[in-house]
Nucleic acid binder design. Structure first.
Length: 358
DNA sequence: CATACGTGGAA
DNA sequence: TTTCCAAGTAT
């Protein structure tokens, strides 16, 4: 296998071939500027990169449009109400991202004069910005020659250099190889081109090597092993958990709570529940004594590391306000704007549907 | 280094 | 139906 030093002499060819490909095939995305043109607004680069963490382009586009319309810059986002921003993020997942998004916007305004730091090292000190996002913003918005390594780039680079070490152990080697082929000119276009390539031709399954612009440079293609790279450790099985949520209804309103900042769906609105979690079932204890009736049906929801079966129990009897957990009455007719994460959105639909039948 | 942390689409 | 996994970060 070629050393990183030996690889470096090929970097110009790889970058040139890739940038030429990008010039013809770049996807037109709302947070992008066309290939070879001045960089986009750093605020939009940052917002899109955070939204795109572990999230598909298709899922992000609508959220990006909504956020930039409501909060077009750091100042407006920093001044927004937490609950409004959290609700606008609902459904996108990984909710620590939106908590850190607000922290970051406020830090930019209060500690950085309203503008992002212009280097990857400076960016990486901000909440929610790790090694990938720092490098991506620095390269795309500020033209820094930073090595941008996401899952797409890991796959492309592992194949280019036939790196057979399994992930995550291979990360150090992959990052060095990425750095060696990253050009000083147009590093942002190069990074986005690598990610576009990984998202299209250099896919996990059935890579289209025969029409790949880097085919001539690809060691894995030469060895006939492209589809087998990168190697990864096997995944663990997801445990099954069960829990109960409590549907408390009065005068066409339902009682919603705000979840603790830490842990699952942290900081988001939700139905009161019996504290189910990844390690244990809920305790089935209702928040107060009442005539609880099981709602027909259940919600099955799959999280990253466990599968939850959520049952629903409802009460509409006269309710002692003092016995309710901290929360708020939410009008049933505007439940869509409550910003419920998908688990509770499913549960609410179940409850509403069941009550209509009765 | 391992684990917690969402969601929906594709095969 | 099941499995994989996507522009990762924080701890």
């Amino acid at each position: 296998m070629a050393s990183v030093q030996q690889r470096a002499q090929y970097s110009g060819d790889i970058a040139s071939a890739l940038l030429a490909y990008y010039g013809r095939n770049a996807r037109d995305l709302p947070w992008r500027s066309p290939p070879g043109t001045p960089p986009p607004d750093p605020y939009q680069v940052w917002l899109s990169e955070v939204m795109l963490q572990q999230t598909t382009v298709a899922a992000v586009i609508g959220y990006f449009e909504n956020f930039t319309r409501r909060w077009p810059d750091f100042a407006s986002l920093a001044a927004a109400e937490d609950a409004d921003v959290m609700a606008a993020w609902a459904g996108l997942g990984y909710y620590s991202r939106v908590r850190n998004l607000l922290k970051c916007a406020r830090a930019v305004v209060s500690d950085h004069g309203g503008a992002l730091p212009r280097t990857a090292a400076g960016l990486a000190k901000l909440p929610g910005i790790g090694p990938y996002t720092a490098a991506a913003i620095a390269a795309i918005a500020f033209n820094e020659r930073a090595a941008v390594v996401d899952a797409n780039v890991e796959r492309v680079v592992a194949r280019l250099f036939a790196i057979e070490t399994p992930l995550p152990a291979a990360k150090v080697e992959i990052r060095a190889a990425t750095d060696a082929i990253t050009p000083a000119r147009r590093p942002g276009d190069f990074a986005q081109a690598m990610m576009d390539l990984g998202a299209s031709l250099c896919s996990v399954r059935n890579p289209q090597c025969l029409i790949c612009p880097l085919q001539a440079d690809c060691a894995a293609q030469k060895a006939g092993m492209a589809e087998t790279l990168p190697r990864k450790a096997a995944k663990k099985a997801k445990p099954d958990r069960a829990g109960t949520a409590w549907w408390i209804e009065r005068d066409d309103h339902v009682w919603l709570v705000r979840r603790p900042d830490r842990g699952m769906l942290g900081g988001m609105r939700g139905l009161p529940d019996d504290r189910w979690n990844a390690r244990a079932d809920g305790d089935s204890q209702p928040p107060f004594a009442a005539d609880w009736k099981a709602v027909a049906g259940e919600v099955v929801h799959v999280f990253t590391h466990f599968r939850l079966t959520l049952r629903l129990a409802a009460t509409a009897a006269p309710i002692d306000e003092n016995s309710l957990p901290p929360g708020e009455w939410w009008p049933l007719k505007s439940l869509d704007s409550a910003g419920l994460p998908t688990l509770f959105s499913k549960a609410a639909k179940l409850a509403v549907r069941a009550s209509r039948k009765v």
